[in-house]
Design a binder for these strands. Structure first.
Lengths: 192, 192
DNA sequence: CTCGTTTGTCTAGCGGTGCTAGGATCAGTT
DNA sequence: AACTGATCCTAGCACCGCTAGACAAACGAG
């Protein structure tokens, strides 16, 4: 019995190692550099071992994405809870979101840019993803305005943030004007 | 002399064929299906011929992107010029943009999602890209509001549209509520 | 303690990718 | 008619995600 437990623990530990290594590698050199061969070499196992933990590369990306969703939710909640007043909370949320995207580009890609095989906006959406959306909604609910569904408003606000994050990171927007963009977005979208 | 001209014409024709085929293939089966081998087979030449026209796959994607930018600009201008009043023009712009993204997903990917090796937001940004941005700015300029730089406002509005487009296409947002989202976005962001 | 059995891991290989070197072929010129 | 240069293709490189099958280590039973 205890033998099985030890083995299970070791397996779980190795799985964590795989995800952490994939994430580190992606953060350092981009997801293109995260090949199954390189990943296997870094964890000091052979390639097929990866497939005893995950169905394929997609699932590994998905695992990193779920980690990222949890961290994003935490970051957003930490930022909003430290701000006073609805306007300040929304601005803090926006900055926290964009900072997360800029600070963890590979994780953000895993979440929203790459195919991690995760279901979104559905019943079987994994909990961390729902919770990240909930973290946004908690604060944005305050500034939704009359007659508007808070969920819909959150979607729109989120889309705007996502657009800013991705266009900036892809070089389509210059990062210098990030702050005035946030100010404008918050001033217009949020009903205070 | 005339011989050289004919050859040049034929070369240009073949280049158009490459881009058109890449685009069609991408639109039908996604960019993943656009491999140099498949593309070469479709144009009935061998693989290396592609490399006598383009540096690599990136540049082919870039060529499709430039085509798309021109069409996007045209679509936006057509939609806005058919609408009466600033509010209606902005709403028409938003719908035209999102329709374009939904109707030409592969082209939209080439433009904003994939690496086509194009420069953005810089001096040497290709003309079609600048012009597509200009097409947005022309209409959004009217509803920017006092004290705000129209360019900055256009960036923010564009980012919001881009977010809606990409999140919807990736299954992160359900397409059913597209219209109310547009309404909300226009009502809040545009100063009429 | 020894012997099957099960479990785990690795080596080797499949079909695919983007890209390129080098030889063959064909057109235009003299 | 022979040369020359442009043009194109065959073949191959190193890499990709993924998997079959051989092998070894660890386990439980007698």
């Amino acid at each position: 019995m205890s033998v099985q437990e030890r083995k299970q623990r070791e397996r779980a530990e190795r799985e964590r190692l795989i995800v952490a290594t994939a994430r580190k590698l992606a953060e350092q050199q981009g997801w293109d550099a995260v090949t199954t061969r390189r990943l296997a070499e870094h964890i000091e196992y052979s390639q097929p071992v990866l497939y005893s933990h995950f169905r394929g590369k997609r699932e590994i990306i998905g695992a990193v994405a779920l980690q990222g969703a949890a961290e994003l939710a935490t970051a957003v909640r930490a930022a909003t809870s430290a701000a006073d007043g609805p306007r300040a909370r929304v601005a803090a949320l926006a900055r926290a979101y964009l900072d997360f995207a800029a600070g963890n580009p590979a994780v953000y890609d895993a979440l929203f840019q790459l195919d991690g095989g995760l279901a979104y906006a559905q019943e079987d959406t994994p909990e961390p993803l729902k919770d990240a959306f909930a973290a946004l909604l908690e604060t944005l609910d305050e500034v939704t305005g009359d007659g508007i569904d808070p969920g819909l408003f959150t979607e729109v606000f989120w889309a705007a943030l996502h657009g800013l994050a991705t266009l900036t990171r892809a070089g389509r927007l210059l990062p210098e004007d990030a702050e005035p963009r946030v100010e404008l977005l918050v001033d217009r979208l949020a009903v205070v």
